[in-house]
Computed example of a mutant assay.
Amino acid sequence: MFDVVIVGGGLTGLAVAAGIGAAGGRALVVEQEPVRRLVEPGFDGRVTAVALGSKRQLDRYGVWPLVGEAQPILNIVVGEKGSPAKVRYDHKDVGTEPFGWIVENRLLRKALLARLDELPEVEILGASRIEELDRAPERVTVKIRGGRTETTKLLLVTEGRYSQTRAQLGIDVQDWNYRQRAFVCTLAHEKPHEGLAVERFFPDGPFAMLPMTGNRSSIVWALEERLAEEVGRLDDGMFLAEVAERFGDALGQLELVGSRFAYPLRMVMAERATDRRVALVGDALRGIHPIAGQGWNLALRDVEAVVDLVSERLRAGLDPGDAATLEAYASRRRFDGLSMVAVTDGINRLFGNDIFPIKLARETGLAVVERIRPLKRLFMRHAMGTLMGN
């Protein structure tokens, strides 16, 4: 019997497995994609902002030393088109460590998989799926494609915001379509970025340039669906011209590296975090707008809660999937999750409105944050993920 079975082998599912395995628990990961596909360069093209608190967590799980290429975020500038009001964050104002690191998703998955290879009590099944679930009072039995059957005390659902297992369990969601698509790609540029991340807001959606290793940056450019369709039809040269128009010439000439990807943006929030012997983790519990770059950091706080609770129960010889454990998990993750949903949704709506009084309020707010140092440091510590003691 496994202590946990994890449905979904994305970043969140692999992180849960690493945490449980590092604590000595037995974990099985069931992933529908072949494992080798998860680390191919063309799999999704995205990068992840790993906050300082999240990096410390991955260190505890033995994952971070295996990451390799990671670009420190040393400074952040936030502003909007046509406004002199900006907020400039410098990591030196709150310590010596970076705000976080930008890492390619495939490199994170590669590091997580390498760590799982070191943990004898963790198994990952690629190109697999759970075909049947049977939940009894004392355990969950899963029938896996190919005829394999396993039992577990706790089923963790980490499939993402469109989880089929969550739907199969009858857990409803609130689903909000932002009617936006996010373009994601990697750019090479003439001049060094010096660890600067830039987020600029436009009436039709936010635009971010995130520093990567070398003279490279990743862009995350969210647009209303109508404009996204037009931009999606542009050739690479015209696409780069539009990017340069929004970002400016601070990094010199830009060159596209690899493919362009486009992702629809939706907010999804499950009506509850748990069910009998089941817990939702990460985007399966709630998927937020990428506007603040905090999606996986939020998911990792779910992971930490699960790992801590399961580890405590196993050390005490208790059931890691009983009602008390699940209630504690739901309670721990409720406020943080709801807060981040509200904040990211609110920022997207606030900066996506060009009505003059709202625009004036935005500019005033940015100016206030820039000038009041204690408030500014509070925002910086939140971005670093260190307010929770990580």
Rank of each mutant, 00 (worst) to 15 (best):
V16Y: 12
A17M: 05
G21P: 13
G21Y: 13
A22Q: 14
A22K: 15
A23H: 11
R26Q: 15
R26H: 15
A27Q: 11
V30K: 06
V30F: 04
Q32D: 01
E33L: 14
P34S: 12
P34W: 01
R37S: 12
R37V: 01
R37I: 00
E40W: 08
E40M: 10
E40P: 01
E40H: 10
P41I: 05
G42A: 12
D44H: 11
D44I: 07
D44R: 09
R46G: 11
T48E: 12
A49Q: 12
V50I: 15
V50C: 13
A51C: 15
S54V: 14
S54L: 02
K55M: 13
Q57N: 05
L58E: 04
D59Y: 01
D59F: 02
D59A: 13
R60M: 06
Y61I: 10
Y61C: 02
V63Y: 06
P65A: 06
L66P: 00
V67A: 03
V67Q: 09
G68F: 02
G68C: 06
E69T: 10
E69W: 07
A70I: 01
P72S: 07
L74N: 07
N75T: 06
I76A: 01
V77P: 00
V78C: 01
G79S: 13
E80S: 09
E80Y: 03
G82H: 09
G82W: 14
G82R: 14
K86T: 06
V87M: 02
Y89A: 08
Y89L: 13
D90V: 00
G95M: 05
G95F: 03
G95C: 08
G100F: 00
W101T: 01
W101C: 00
W101L: 03
I102T: 10
E104R: 13
N105F: 11
